[in-house]
Design a protein around this nucleic acid. Sequence first.
DNA 1: AGTGCGATTGACT
DNA 2: GTCAATCGCACTA
Length: 193
Amino acid sequence: MRRLELPDDAVELARFLIGKVLVRDHRSGRTSGRIVETEAYPVGDAAGHAFIGMTSANQSLFLAKGHAYVYFIYGSSYMCNVAAEPRGVGAGVLLRALEPLEGISLMQRRRGTRRLTELAKGPGRLASAMAIDRRCDGMDLCAAGALWLGRDERPRVRPSRSVRIGLTKEVGRLLRFYERGSSCVSGPRRLRG
DNA sequence: AGTGCGATTGACT
DNA sequence: GTCAATCGCACTA
């Protein structure tokens, strides 16, 4: 698959990434999945981790667009984001769900379930299924490496959008994108869910 | 040095 | 449907 050319801001990137493929090349094997759900955290968004300015924890959000920002939350889950702006500007897109494509048995072992629709439904499960952790933080997802973005063979449908999930700030903004009809999407599948 | 809490999940009623 | 576990980090002092 050839290198992806990413759009210029977080909202466009979140929309763009629906229907693309996330590939993980790990020593235990390759896993990949079609991205079916994302959320945008644009510049100036009080719900975004970049809002407080650059710190040791969020610095990868300020890398050039296409770099991974991976963080650990609730003592249990890793979240995988894609930086969305030029170097020095903090904004990103959270990857929330995948439809598994390659390495399904490996994902099943990592997740402890055989159900395809539950392997990567939700950001923490996505990271777990793909063996994404702190070591992936700062990787360039548009370069050759252990974690990268590619295209899917299948046609892309126009993403639906809704409010974002789990936030206490900036609650009303329609910055969640998802593939309508996919059973791998987490959470509500209607406009104001 | 102590406190509060978060872009969640899995277990349970 | 509800709810607690769990831990790294920002913030206060």
